[in-house]
């Protein structure tokens, strides 16, 4: 690499400055992920409403949120929300980002919950009914404890996906690593080094996490498919 384009001095000068934003980036990831985890339940239960037109509306609202750019949704919450007469309030960049990214990804997470619930054996619902569980107890003690654990690897994947979407919040002024890098770049007219640092940080954090989740997934699969595997071995032993 040509030294006029790349300077290790700049690199080492920018490194601590960019790293200052890491706490915010990770903090925003965790907060908005938690928000999405909770809000995901709202979608899951809204979609269980039996009323046809209502169900149709909810389905398309979810579709609307997930197929439009999260960047525009951030702008909407940060710039437009305060301007709405009556209900509008000014939100800090961080809060806006938590709500914006949280709602966007909650539509995906709601679908993950749904797939988990649908995977619970039909007999479990019937058993809960036969044992006369109340609706709350049925969900809390029978359905969710079986539906949620298998979704953990998928949720973990969304945690990583959200981590990579968090730098969008730099556009509304959340001082994570990307904003730090861009600010440094603007002050010193040297963007390449700080942006490279940002890339390396993302790679260093997301790649090992992805491998970890893959391992978790394999572990989970063997745990939850144990029944099926047992049956297969039995079949094989017959002949």
């Amino acid at each position: 690499m040509n030294s006029t384009y790349w300077s290790w001095d700049t690199f080492s000068e920018a490194l601590p400055i960019v790293l200052k934003g890491l706490g915010i980036t990770v903090g925003l990831t965790i907060t908005s992920f938690l928000f999405a985890l909770i809000f995901g339940f709202v979608w899951t239960f809204l979609r269980r409403i039996r009323n046809k037109p209502l169900n149709w509306i909810i389905t398309w609202v979810m579709e609307f949120i997930r197929s439009t750019p999260p960047l525009v949704q951030l702008f909407f919450i940060y710039y437009a929300w305060p301007m709405i007469p009556g209900i509008g309030v000014t939100l800090s960049p961080f809060t806006s980002a938590v709500i914006g990214l949280g709602i966007h990804f909650s539509t995906y997470i709601g679908e993950i919950y749904r797939s988990g619930i649908e995977a619970v054996d039909k007999g479990q619902w019937e058993a809960a009914k036969a044992l006369n569980f109340s609706t709350v107890d049925k969900w809390r003690r029978i359905i969710l404890p079986q539906a949620l654990p298998p979704t953990i690897p998928m949720l973990g994947n969304y945690f990583i996906i959200m981590f990579k979407e968090v730098p969008l919040a730099s556009t509304i002024g959340v001082a994570g690593i990307l904003l730090m890098a861009n600010t440094y770049g603007a002050q010193n007219w040297a963007y390449l080094e700080p942006l490279t640092i940002v890339g390396i940080i993302f790679l260093l954090l997301s790649y090992p996490s992805a491998i970890l989740i893959k391992k978790l997934e394999i572990k989970m699969n063997t745990r939850f498919d144990k029944k099926a595997t047992l049956e297969n071995t039995k079949k094989g032993a017959v002949m």
Binding site: K164, P167, L168, L178, L195, L203, A210
Partner: peptide
């Protein structure tokens, strides 16, 4: 792995400069 491991917005800025 590099393109999946980093953000689109970071890649966009990086390539831009």
């Amino acid at each position: 792995e590099v393109f999946r491991g980093t953000s689109l917005i970071v890649q966009l800025f990086w390539l831009f400069y």
